[in-house]
Design a protein around this nucleic acid. Structure first.
Lengths: 121, 121
DNA sequence: CTCTATGCAAAAACTTTGCAGGGAT
DNA sequence: ATCCCTGCAAAGTTTTTGCATAGAG
């Protein structure tokens, strides 16, 4: 299983909490906030935040704030971008149409904000 | 002066605090956080946040979280996007090369995250 | 066995709210 | 004169930290 290797590569110990987090995020189809997750988590919030922070340092997970002013976390899978609707606040993952290299900048991540298809009709 | 009109258009009273905020943001060349601003502000933080919130509702100001986990505020000028560097955490404003309309979505704002020119050399 | 990770509780950081007085229209 | 805006203080929310114990390698 790749979770074990992922963690050992980064010199992180394989613990129940980390396994749980990585399993949740690797099967999630959208970014998740702590608030959405907390009821199903078996770990303390301190452990959640400490591990998320560790995962961010190791570029395993990334994070952004949505329009509801909450942080959403997502595992770094194949490059894709996010669209946050200013009206319904829904977050959609989109295939990135952008080049990952633009005028000397390397683009790792794109967040679009605007009006989604549904709200726009 | 356009600040007066801007506020009366939105049915907001012209107060010292609002004038101060709009003057700061309309002359700023980059997004600013409360932390960066607080020493030069003559208003209470409650007033700051209440007005920012009001301005966001009225689409006068918009806000995003940067890599330092702080919220940055900026006046809505001509459309442009932001590049946040994952290494130096610097925020750059960029001319938007994207269309503002993409596959049924209306794009109001774009945040790119990645590695900036300077860190990339 | 050693060093890292965890839970709990407490603190810190950031933002919002209640209320009474002040100011804009 | 009316209603909105403000400061202050207090509370709310989210995230971080200290410390003692548990657990992984």
């Amino acid at each position: 299983m790749q979770i074990k290797e992922l963690l050992s590569d980064k010199k992180l110990k394989l613990t129940t909490a980390r396994k749980e987090l990585l399993e949740i995020f690797s099967t999630a189809h959208k970014p998740l906030s702590y608030e959405e997750l907390k009821s199903e988590l078996s770990m303390d919030k301190a452990t959640f935040y400490r591990n998320i922070s560790r995962f961010e340092d190791e570029s395993i997970i990334n994070c952004f704030e949505s329009n509801d002013k909450k942080r959403y976390y997502e595992i770094q899978k194949k490059p894709h971008s996010h669209f946050i609707c200013n009206l319904c606040n829904n977050i959609e993952c989109m295939k990135t149409t952008n080049n990952t290299y633009m005028d000397g900048y390397i683009i790792k991540d794109v967040i679009y904000k605007g009006i989604c298809k549904i709200c726009n009709t």
